[in-house]
Each structure stands twice: as C-alpha cells, then as structure tokens.
Write a protein that binds this DNA or RNA. Structure first.
Lengths: 187, 187
DNA sequence: TAGCGTTTTTATCATTTGTTAAATGGTTTC
DNA sequence: GAAACCATTTAACAAATGATAAAAACGCTA
C-alpha cells in the first residue's frame, strides 16, 4: 500500500502537513525472518507495512505467544516505546520479505508540537488503534475459539496461506492441537 | 479526584488551554444503578469519575458480560461514539452514587481544531487508553483466571467491597462458580 | 523423486471449566 | 424476628481443552 494512502486513511491532511510527515519517512526492506523489534528495548521508530506480513509475540514461560498480526497498510508500533518511551515487551518478526516505511519517533514528536494538523493526525492514529484493540478485547472475551478463528480468517483472508498454524493458535489463545480440532469440525 | 488533577495527569496544559477545556465541563450527579450509556446509541459526552465506580457490559446471548470497571479519576467513554461517531455496543451502569465531570464531545472536537495543546492533550488521552487496553489484552491472553483475579484486586483494592462477584467473574471471562473455586483455593 | 526436517493431524488420557441444582449466608422489609 | 430475596458456595456430572506421543502430510533440497 502506498504511503499517501496510508497517511490519508488515518486523517486527511493538507499537502503541506503531509509533506512534513513524508520528509521524516524513509523506505526500508528486510528479509523474511528479520526481527524488527526486540523485547526489553526502547524502539526509536514506528513503521507502516508497504508489502508483507508480520507478527508480534512475547514469551510465556518458554512459549512464544503471538498477539498481533500486521498486513499491508498496518502500522507496526511498540506502544510502550511510542507512548511512554519505555521498553516494550514484544518481539516483532517479519513473516515474509517486507517493504516498510520507517518514521522516526523523535521527528514525529517534534511535528506534533509544531503543526496542529499533524497533532490531530497523531490523535486520530491513536484513536484508531484503540478501536482495533477494543475489538480484539471483545472478541477474546465474548467469542469462543471457533468464532475467533472464523473472524480472524475473515479479517485476513490470506493469513492461512502466509502464516503457520502454531502462530494462529497462540493468537487465538488455544493450543495448536485445539486449533486442529476446530479446523476438523469447521470444514 | 479533582478536575485539574485529572486533566494534568493526561498531559500538562497551560492555564489558558486548561481553562478552555474546563469551560466545556459541567459537574453532574447520578444515583447508584443509573444507566449512563445505552448500547446502540451514539453518545454525545465523555465523563470523568470524580467519585464512585462504574462498569461497562454488553450482552452475549442473554448474559451480561462486564468488560470494564472505572473508578475515581478514570474516563468513561463509548469509544465507537468518541472516535467514529457511531453507535456503541455497551451499557455503562453506575455501581455507586456517582459524581461525574461531563465533557460534551462536540465542544471538545472544536477545541482540538483550534488549540494545538488541546489537540496534543487529546492525542495523549487516546494513547493512554491504548496502553490500558493493551495491558488488558495481554492479561487476557497470557494469564490464567487466577492470575487475572489477583491482578484485578491489585489494581482495584476496594473492588471486592464495592462490586458483586458475578460482575467480576464475567470480567475475568469465567463463570461465577469458577470464581468461587478460585477464591476457595487462593484463600 | 527420494529423503529429511518441519508442520499438521489424530489418538489417548488427565485436567480444567461449564452446567445444573441445591445448600448456605446475608440483608431487607414488614 | 420471620419471611422473602439475593449473593455466594458447594456438589455431581458433562463438556471442552490441555499434554504427550505418534502418525500423516507437506515442503524443500540434493
């Protein structure tokens, strides 16, 4: 997905303000398997996915638990770093060769204080992340694993072709064996 | 909790900007049991709790499932209304006699476009809500019911004295009977 | 395409959680 | 203070999920 579209989908900006953001963005490429964010580290950038797919995970005992998937157009953010300038608790792994837009937080924070339109863009960016997070919360609390599985496929139609089932199972909060049983029943 | 402290805890403002926000806020009182937000309605205000405690719930089949508790200092927001001007899916019930600060969204939205400090205050407000939401997500996905129960009591020490166990059980994503079993083991 | 390593499914059994019903404990009201 | 009501706990059984191990399917490489 192209940069202009990603920025405008969050909050429409004048050309002038958009150019200020774009001047702080560079395009970067990484290979499949690259670890973009490391847990217990303060991240200095946020990213937007131009092409590819990624996941965030953390460890519970020795198990990796995936709690986020990102696809084209989605932001990749360590919220603890972005909001509080503190260490994050997640690794982010790229699941395919990826093209990303990188935005340095320091420059963005400066723009927030200088340009009211960009401040409102940043406000809207955060608000949209709340909505995503709230939807996920409600899905975890109100739906059973089968419903969550079907909803996930609905949101990310190509996910099954791009991500291994063990990651999907941990995202759903169940074991891979339970996911197999669900798939056997749903088919 | 007093209004100045609530506003400043989100993001420190100059007196001038803070007065603009405060000019849009009125104090209101409601009795225990009052339904502040109704599901499937576009809410026009957000609130901050000066005194009291509240919960948000939605229905799954015929069961009320509580998914949020708010106490002194917390905001009460229907995010779907606040962010997208769309109908919310939750009721909010006051669990005690409450004193609230009411802030009309329409006036706040106007201030966002006129005052860059208030725009950044609104940005920070949303960002802090993301952090809360993310913590809750991680607790739901990474911790078992016993751990979540203990963490909830830790965050809201007086909750047990103020809220009935059936609400706590549904918040934890378990039945009230399971919660009884947990409490029998933890004691 | 044969072989090897990885991913996914299946089977079995143990554990946890849910369901239903009944018992206990507390509070309010007349 | 007895009756009625509500919240909470306990008990017994059913259903769902987890753990472990093994088999099957898949994908890559030589």
């Amino acid at each position: 997905m192209e940069l202009d579209q990603i920025i405008d989908n969050i909050y429409p900006l004048t050309t002038k303000s958009k150019d200020l953001i774009k001047a702080s963005i560079i395009e970067v490429k990484f290979s499949k398997g690259h670890i973009l964010f490391k847990a217990n580290k303060i991240e200095k950038s946020i990213y937007f996915i131009k092409k590819g797919i990624a996941r965030a995970y953390a460890y519970s005992d020795d198990n990796q638990i995936t709690f986020w998937f990102g696809k084209e157009g989605d932001p990749i953010v360590s919220m603890q770093s972005y909001v509080n300038n503190q260490k994050g608790y997640e690794d982010v792994e790229l699941l395919e060769d990826c093209e990303l837009y990188e935005l340095k937080m320091e420059q963005l924070q400066k723009l927030f204080l200088e340009d009211i339109h960009i401040a409102n863009w940043g406000r809207k960016f955060a608000e949209l992340e709340i909505i995503k997070s709230e939807k996920r919360l409600i899905s975890l609390q109100f739906e059973n694993a089968t419903q969550r599985y079907l909803a996930l496929l609905n949101n990310y139609p190509s996910l099954l072709q791009r991500v291994q089932l063990s990651h999907i199972a941990s995202y759903l909060g169940i074991t891979q064996i339970s996911l197999s049983r669900i798939r056997a029943n749903v088919k």
